[in-house]
Write a protein that binds this DNA or RNA. Structure first.
Length: 751
DNA sequence: GGGCGCGGGATTTTT
DNA sequence: TCCCGCGCCC
């Protein structure tokens, strides 16, 4: 195979794929074929070097990438590779901890807590410690704990540099204890506990070091300290470690990732062979030039010279729009017209944005323009109340000691077990020295409980149900969907959903989610309950992105990593959004915002659009927005669009405003200013609204107007916004629109 | 024990 | 704007 396999690689790719033993660092620019290099490297090791698949460990960034990589390697080698380990750090660690459960404090049936569940544990601990949760937000404390775990700092080793640190140092040990008591780990534990196990337990360490003779890691720039340490531990002593990364694409610092690990690798593995991949096979030259203009402003990076032979391509369009609704409309119209003119298909388009909250108008516009779309993220399926409830039942059946799930469902649907009864139960179990699991089975067996008739009966019934379901799971041939049916039937869950739903539509939606969960369980029926729960805990939003469905993809810039599309629209390219206001004061964070834009730009194969709005609403209020400062770094020669003209117009408006003799109270503040204000101090709501100037409307309701694009229309409504006027117009042809007077150039036609 | 209404706060990104 | 948590009341 060697010949045909390696033929399609360029010399640098081939050098990487065929590198000898020892550490290898591949510095791979976007679109330079790094996935190809990784898959070929695996195939090469197996086929040419005779390494059994069992001895390989490949780490990818998402489960989806893992699945695709496995398929591609199997395709190259023409057969299934059962022994090969490919997965995310988290999934690989979860498996390992399951296998080695006897050597961890968590047991085999541990649950994996997501952020909400972690928060509920943190809140429990904080209220137990009488910490003011208004002053110290549980989320912030949790974040600090998470960071600590990523840095491999143990509960009792937290530095107490300031009072917040002191609070965290108090919460962390109790939080961790609560997790152990529940037999639950958080995401960070999956990594940290594995590191601790490998460090402290020689037998386990040697077992895996022997097994994983070759270690390969993708997206190395997004590893954190714990992951870096895992690579070292798995890779020793042979150090056959093959890592692929690009410092310019490090976008996960907020969860402890450090792109400098790429350079640290050179330092820590001095003999490492370094390969640079600079030829880009994805994008046109214009796109690459824009990307480069953006990223070049970052210091502390290895300059790269990306080149392509795909031609210059069309210019990058920079488009100013009026509001986020117009932005969405522009996107939808652009997609429609490109489909008409160039024969693109829905799946060729991606709309990207900085924050999930921006997705809504695009969804609306897609519906309006009849564009099928695939939304990545948002309120995830597994975050839905009804789905969480059912998953909590499954978790309790799997392990009743897992307290967040237990507390969640013990009285859902209501069975007459309130806070008082629950507290009494826990107290009683603790007095007996029993775990919750033990106490439940004692109750099911008829043990006397310390509360009155009705609650006692309810508890006994609940305990017997749990026991019956546990027995059901053990029955040979029982399926997950049968378990699902039995649970929902017994607890009367459909009736409960009807009760808690405010509208028939809401009820319908919940029932559909339930049906979808059942479908997933049916599909996964070959898994044990334990494995099913593990899998659902570790799915990422992006994993559910269905390549077979034809639709426009809506996703955050973070989720776009590793993907590519013929046409990319990056939206909300505004100061305060991209770069995000929370990053603006911090040079390191700003550098990451730049990388984020860089990642987005380099997803585009052929066409790239950058849009920003003139007004954007936040928490209900509409505010002026500023184009992103990053746009200023892009040479005008690479772009076209209306942005320059509009910018000038706006400068003129500002000039007029500044030189006007009669000053009106200016109650329009910038978007960014507002964000900053809100961070600095909570909004004071007791204050009366500022007195409004008596409105003298230029476009009062009823008046007829003319617009260059929309034609003739009648003003339905008009409101004054600062020095500007917002006009709601019903056009004869173009329908109803809300326009900014200063921007729309409406011509008054009279009544 | 459960339901309702009010007030305050808000996630930027995710395994 | 919207959602959550708390407190009050039944």
């Amino acid at each position: 195979m060697a010949g045909d396999l390696l033929d399609i690689l360029n010399p640098q790719q081939r050098q990487a794929v065929t590198a000898g033993d020892g550490p290898v660092l591949v510095l791979a620019g976007p679109g330079s074929g790094k996935t190809r290099v990784l898959t070929y490297r695996i195939a090469y090791l197996i086929r040419e070097r005779g390494i059994p698949p069992y001895n390989l460990l490949a780490v990818t960034f998402t489960n989806k990438a893992a699945g695709e990589m496995r398929e591609r390697v199997e395709g190259l080698l023409g057969g299934r590779l059962d022994g090969l380990t490919i997965g995310t750090f988290h999934a690989i660690c979860a498996k390992l901890l399951r296998v080695e459960a006897d050597r961890t404090p968590f047991g085999r049936d541990y649950a994996i807590y997501d952020t909400d569940e972690q928060a509920s544990v943190v809140k429990g601990v904080m209220s137990q410690l009488n910490i003011d949760m208004k002053r110290f937000k549980p989320g912030a404390v949790l974040n600090a704990i998470s960071q600590a775990k990523n840095e491999l700092i143990l509960p009792n080793d937290m530095p107490r540099n300031d009072y917040f640190g002191e609070i965290v140092a108090r919460v962390y040990p109790l939080y961790q204890q609560a997790l152990v008591n529940s037999g639950a780990m958080d995401f960070d534990d999956l990594l940290m506990q594995t590191v601790l196990l490998l460090r402290d337990d020689e037998v386990v360490r040697e077992k895996y070091q022997r097994r994983f003779a070759y270690v390969l890691v993708d997206e190395f720039q997004d590893t954190n300290t714990a992951q870096y340490e895992l690579v070292r531990l798995f890779g020793a002593p042979q150090l056959n470690i093959f890592v692929v990364g690009d410092e310019d694409q490090g976008i996960y610092a907020f969860r402890g990732a450090d792109y400098r690990n790429v350079m640290a690798f050179r330092r820590d593995y001095p003999g490492a062979e370094v390969v640079l991949l600079e030829q880009n096979y994805r994008s046109t030259q214009n796109v690459l030039d824009v990307a480069r203009a953006v990223i070049d402003k970052n210091t502390k990076r290895t300059p790269k010279h990306l080149f392509t032979d795909r031609g210059e391509g069309p210019k990058v369009i920079v488009q100013e729009v009026y509001t986020e609704a117009d932005e969405a409309q522009f996107a939808a119209e652009t997609i429609r017209s490109l489909m008409r003119s160039d024969g693109y298909s829905f799946r060729d388009f991606a709309i990207m944005y900085r924050t999930n909250a921006q997705s809504r108008p695009f969804e609306d516009a897609c519906v309006q323009y009849n564009l099928p779309y695939k939304l990545v993220g948002g309120v995830g399926f597994y975050k839905r109340r009804e789905v969480r409830d059912l998953v909590a039942y499954l978790r309790v059946i799997n392990n009743p000691n897992e307290s967040v799930s237990f507390d969640r469902i013990v009285n859902v649907p209501g069975r007459g077990i309130g806070d008082k009864t629950l507290a009494a139960f826990k107290m009683w179990a603790a007095d007996q020295g029993w775990s919750v699991a033990r106490a439940l089975s004692e109750i099911a067996g008829g043990a006397a409980v310390p509360f009155s008739g009705r609650a006692a009966k309810a508890f006994a019934e609940f305990a017997r149900q749990i026991e019956a379901w546990q027995a059901f799971v053990e029955v040979e041939g029982s399926t997950l969907e049968a378990l699902f049916d039995d649970i929902t039937g017994q607890i009367g869950y459909a009736a409960y959903l009807r009760e808690i739903s405010d509208t028939p539509e809401e009820n319908e939606e919940r029932m559909q989610n339930l049906a979808q969960l059942r479908a997933v369980m049916k599909e996964k029926s070959h898994l044990s309950l334990r494995d099913f729960l593990e899998e659902t805990a570790l799915v990422a939003e992006i994993d559910s992105l269905d390549a077979t469905k034809n639709g426009v993809t809506l996703l955050t810039l973070h989720a776009a990593k590793g993907l590519e599309y013929p046409v990319v629209l990056i939206t909300g390219v505004e100061d305060g959004l991209l770069p995000h206001s929370r990053s603006i004061t911090e040079p390191e964070a700003m550098a990451e915002e730049r990388r984020l834009l860089y990642v987005g730009v380099t997803r585009a194969r052929e066409r790239l659009y950058l849009t920003y709005a003139f007004r954007r609403s936040l928490y209900g209020d509409s505010m002026l927005a500023e184009p992103s400062r990053f746009l200023g770094d892009i040479p005008a020669a690479l772009t076209e669009g209306n942005w320059f003209r509009v910018k000038k117009m706006r400068d003129q408006t500002a000039l007029e405003q500044a030189t006007r003799w009669e000053r009106e109270p200016n109650n329009v503040i910038s978007f960014e200013q507002k964000l900053r204000d809100m961070q600095a101090s909570p909004r004071d709501r007791s204050k009366a609204p500022p007195p409004r100037p008596t409105p003298t409307l230029k476009y009062p309701p009823g008046v007829r107007v003319f617009h260059a694009k929309f034609g003739e229309g009648v003003v339905l409504n008009s409101t004054r916004v600062g020095d500007d006027e917002e006009v709601d117009v019903q056009f004869a042809q173009a329908g109803r629109r809300v326009l900014s007077a200063s921007f729309a150039n409406l011509v008054l036609l009279g009544r």
